[in-house]
Design a binder for these strands. Structure first.
Lengths: 206, 206
DNA sequence: AACCCTGTCAACCATTTGTTTGACAAAGCT
DNA sequence: AGCTTTGTCAAACAAATGGTTGACAGGGTT
């Protein structure tokens, strides 16, 4: 190995268009976050190794401390990104099946992050959560119930809880998914079938 | 601390009925398994600390190596126990709602183990699982479909996947459960409502 | 050109952590 | 009673791991 920076194995270039700078804080940051997402998703916070994350990102592990203040900081940064995106999901004029499928879609394109989120949910301390029966998402469901999308004998709170579980089933039980359906959980075919089946179940809630 | 064995703080007794032996391999084993179940459920395999397990069990941590060959061995032992019990669930003459509620019931009385199981599912390598569309549990569902318990437009494989997800929702999302319903997920009231709501959803699958 | 801030790395360090070792006593056996 | 096996513990150990330090060069600024 030679002691130069970046992946400049192809020889010295005179920064052709500003896109291949060998020192790019933003790129390093992003690479670390992306890599960490996978590692944390695979092994969890405790199981993930900072060295593995750095290696996957192609940078020195010290940068994790430099940019995020350590392993935990990196973890938090990713989680923040997750919550931010999730908050933007529900909106006015979105039907229930739409919303569910939206979550499903998101889970498909962010498997690692979903895995990480599930682990986080498992790790989290449930005692320090406030009850919020007036939360926005719940009110949305109540409105849907009045509109007839959900039967009057069902409790929107439990319905929402159930839906959240349904949406992550594939990520939570990849092995079961494969065993039962005979399909690869990552495949397009599985995804299509899942969409269809889930929609049918959601329709039945009415 | 004095260098004597057992919890004999109350003074020396002459083994009154064979139940308070201070050296009891079986008791130590069980204590370790029980303690580990909680620790692994709370922190996961990587996050759990052998010292914490031993402390919770009230024995020396070395016994983990002695009896189970180490942390991993203890983990495997517990997992084995889980699978063994689960295999005994489905049987002839059990209706679908019954079966689901049975899983629900089991999850309630074994929260730690369920948590641990979920983590394991998340950790596991899905690639080394064989597709088994002729599995026993699936055939059972197909029979139920013919009997009218499941609509003909639903695929038993996905239904089973969904049901498994529904049953663990409470353990997977304890914080959400509390936030949405306003009830403590461990409380009897939550459990009763959950039973009821879940049953209604399962009925709707027909 | 001289200077300085920033990005990056390799080596080092302190701690944590699972496991091994060695001692020792409780029970069982002869 | 004496011997052996087994259960248990405290202390020592080695490996792993996250974080810190110090060097150094790229780039922009003066």
């Amino acid at each position: 190995m030679n002691p130069t920076y970046g992946a400049g194995v192809v020889g010295p270039r005179r920064s052709p268009a500003g896109d291949e700078r060998q020192r790019d804080a933003e790129r390093s940051r992003t690479a670390l976050v992306d890599a960490a997402e996978v590692e944390f998703g695979d092994k969890g916070l405790a199981g993930a190794r900072v060295e593995a994350i750095a290696a996957r990102a192609g940078v020195n592990k010290q940068l994790i401390s430099y940019y995020f203040g350590g392993k935990q900081g990196l973890y938090d940064a990713i989680l923040e990104r997750w919550y931010a995106r999730e908050r933007s999901f529900d909106g006015p004029g979105v039907t229930l099946p739409d919303l569910v499928l939206r979550y499903l879609e998101d889970g498909r394109s962010n498997v690692s992050m979903t895995r990480m989120f599930l682990r986080e949910s498992l790790d989290g301390d449930p005692s320090q959560v406030a009850a919020a029966p007036d939360a926005e998402d719940l009110q949305g469901l109540r409105r849907r119930q009045l509109a007839g999308e959900i039967g009057p004998d069902l409790d929107p709170a439990f319905v929402l809880l159930f839906l959240q579980a349904l949406v992550v089933a594939r990520v939570l039980y990849p092995a079961e998914a494969k065993r039962l359906t005979g399909l690869e959980p990552d495949s397009q075919e599985f995804h299509d079938r899942l969409r269809e089946q889930l929609a049918r179940v959601v329709e039945r809630l009415a």
